[in-house]
Amino acid sequence: MEIAEFSQLARSIEREVSRVIVGQQHVVRLVLICVLSGRHALLEGVPGLGKTQLIRTLADAMALNFSRIQFTPDLMPSDVTGTNIMEDTEDGRKAFRFQRGPIFANLVLADEINRATPKTQSALLEAMQEKTVTVGGVVYPLSLPFFVLATQNPLEQEGTYPLPEAQLDRFMFKIDVDFPTVNDLVTIIERTTGNISPKAEKVVDGEQVLQMGELALNMPVPTHVTRYVAELIIATHPESENAPDAVRRYVRYGASPRGAQALIMGAKIHALLEGRFNVSFDDIEAIAFASLRHRLLLNFEGMAEGVPTDAIVEGLLKSVQKVKA
């Protein structure tokens, strides 16, 4: 894939999504970055902000297999991964046949993922990390591209099961879906209350998505930007010498190396989407909040005081020196 083609396809995807999703350009950009990098995203926002619609529209624009899993407390892992069912064979014998679950798709929407039990949530771990599913001792590879886009509601916490840290870490971004502005809301009202519902056209297929991701991962990153990312990750740990005061005070555990990977990979695609051919500090800052906010585990004091992790990330970005010239 050529660079020009990448830019054209990326702009096409965003354009098609924007035909359905009003506003939320930053959310769309972040979700697109996750898709192109082959990673997963967790979208958090109050109900009715179009999270599910965004993911569905993205699947439509990319011509990917889409499946939606509505997570509930009684959802079982086999409901996600699939299960072996007994069937009668042609010769009259009985045999097990693997019935694929909804996880077997290119784009999986795990709606309200925090309502499922941890046992069911953990069923996603292997699929998200290894892109395989193991049932009955048999490993079933998932078709690529494979993305899990999960949503969760921050308001209704009763009867929910917060995602464990290990699973949170597997999400490349945690994207906060903000409430739309007045103008966006007016547009949403106009689009959704009429007879005509806009729909995204397919502009890219799965193969192209993989090629776009492959091209983006070869983006050159200057050494001092890489070092900056490393120092940024180190500074998220309270025991670090360069950790800012907010981290020392409110953070129990900092970001893992997956956070650094997320920053660099996301920055590469962000740079390409911005029309540049190198990663800059601006790219890092653009995705830093989505990459780090779910990787900073607050301590009791931080949770008691309701310290937003975005504030801590903002302090991190200010405290870590970019260029030592």
Partner: peptide
């Protein structure tokens, strides 16, 4: 300049690698 010049220098000097087209 969003690290354009420094990246170019490092690419020229071989300090970093990247896709040829991108470089």
């Amino acid at each position: 300049l969003q690290e354009r010049v420094s990246t170019a220098l490092e690419l020229i000097t071989g300090a970093i690698q990247g896709d040829d087209r991108l470089a």
